[in-house]
C-alpha cells in the first residue's frame, strides 16, 4: 500500500464536492457577520434548505427549481431570525440557537413523507462535480468583489464596523442587515440542498449532521475573508475526505484526535490574526453581535 494509489484528481474532485456545502453556508454567514450580525442558526437554515430543495425537486422533477426553493426557504427562516433580532431586538446568540432547534424540528416534520424517495438526478459536470461546485467558487469571487470593490459592499461593511456612524450618515442599518441575513439564509439553504440533492442524494432526518456548525468555524478560520473561506472549507472538508481515503487505502488513521485538528487549527489561526492587532485590521466586524437600536 502506498500513497501513489491515491489518484490526486479523484481526491481533488471529492474534496471539492465535500467542501461545496460548507463554502455556500460559510460564504453566506460571512456576509451576515460582515454586516455586524452573528447568526448561529446556520445548521437550522441548512437543513431547511435540504428538505425544501428536496421536496421541490421531487415535486417539479427539476433540481434547479429545488435549489431555488432551498434558497427561498433558507432566506425565509433567516428573515424570522432577522425579525426577532433586528426589529424586536432579541439577543442574537439565543435567537440563533433557537433557530437551529426550530429548523431541525421543522425540517424533520416536513420531511416525514420524503424518506425513501429518490430525487431527480442533478446534472454532473464531471465525476462528483456538479454545477454548484464552480458556482460556489464564483460566489466566493462575487462576494469578494462585492465587499472589496462595490459601493453597496462598502456600506455593508460600514454598517458592520460602526452601526451608529452608518446610521448617522443616513444608511438604513436595519434594512441592510435584513438583506444580509436573508442572503446568508439563502446561501445556507443552497448548501443544505447540495447535500440532499447532490452529495448524498436522499433525504434523511438530521442529515446535515453538524455541517452548519463547521461553516461557522470556517468563517472565523477565514478571518472574514472570502478567499480564505474557500481555503477553510477545503481544509475542514479535506480532513474528513483524506481520513476516509487513507483508510480506504489501508493506512488506518481514523480517530477522534484527527477530527479535533481543524478546530484547534481554527483557534490557532484566530489567535495569530488577533494577536497584537486591532480588530479592524483583522477583518472581524467591530459590531459583530451587538444590538443596534436606532430609537435609542
Amino acid at each position: 500500500m502506498d500513497l501513489a494509489a491515491l489518484d490526486p484528481l479523484l481526491l481533488l474532485a471529492s474534496l471539492l464536492a465535500a467542501a461545496t456545502p460548507l463554502i455556500w453556508a460559510a460564504m453566506g454567514e460571512l456576509v451576515v457577520e460582515r454586516s455586524g450580525v452573528l447568526n448561529l442558526g446556520v445548521e437550522g437554515m441548512m437543513i431547511i434548505g435540504a428538505i425544501a430543495g428536496f421536496a421541490a425537486a421531487v415535486a417539479t422533477a427539476s433540481p434547479a427549481l429545488g435549489f431555488l426553493a432551498a434558497a427561498a426557504a433558507g432566506a425565509a427562516l433567516a428573515l424570522l431570525f432577522g425579525l426577532l433580532t433586528q426589529i424586536l431586538l432579541a439577543n442574537q446568540v439565543a435567537t440563533g440557537l433557537a433557530l437551529t432547534m426550530f429548523g431541525l424540528g421543522l425540517a424533520a416534520l416536513i420531511g416525514q413523507p420524503y424518506s425513501g424517495i429518490k430525487p431527480p438526478p442533478a446534472t454532473r459536470l464531471a465525476g462528483q462535480i456538479d454545477v454548484m461546485v464552480p458556482l460556489g467558487l464564483a460566489l466566493a469571487g462575487a462576494v469578494w468583489w462585492f465587499l472589496a470593490r462595490s459601493r453597496p459592499g462598502l456600506i455593508l461593511r460600514a454598517v458592520g464596523e460602526n452601526h451608529d456612524a452608518a446610521h448617522a450618515l443616513g444608511y438604513p442599518v436595519v434594512a441592510i442587515r435584513l438583506a444580509a441575513i436573508a442572503f446568508g439564509g439563502a446561501c445556507a439553504g443552497l448548501g443544505g440542498a447540495h447535500l440532499s440533492l447532490v452529495r448524498v442524494p436522499q433525504w434523511t432526518e438530521g442529515m446535515t449532521a453538524g455541517a452548519g456548525w463547521i461553516a461557522l468555524a470556517i468563517v472565523v478560520f477565514a478571518s472574514w475573508r472570502p478567499a480564505r473561506v474557500v481555503l477553510g472549507a477545503w481544509l475542514f472538508g479535506g480532513v474528513t475526505i483524506l481520513q476516509l481515503n487513507l483508510q480506504a487505502l489501508g493506512l488506518g488513521i481514523g480517530s477522534a484526535w484527527m477530527s479535533m485538528a481543524p478546530y484547534l487549527m481554527t483557534i490557532l489561526v484566530l489567535v495569530l490574526i488577533s494577536a497584537g492587532r486591532s480588530r479592524a485590521a483583522l477583518g472581524a466586524p467591530a459590531c459583530l453581535g451587538r444590538v443596534f437600536d436606532a430609537s435609542g
Binding site: 426577532l84 439565543a94 435567537t95 433557537a98 432547534m101 426550530f102 424540528g105 416534520l109
Partner: peptide, 18 residues
C-alpha cells in the same frame, strides 16, 4: 412525533425572545 415537539420548542423560544 419528536420532530413536532422540537418545532414547538423552537416556537416557544421565539415567542419568549420576541
Amino acid at each position: 412525533p419528536a420532530a413536532a415537539n422540537e418545532t414547538f420548542r423552537g416556537m416557544l423560544l421565539f415567542a419568549l425572545l420576541a
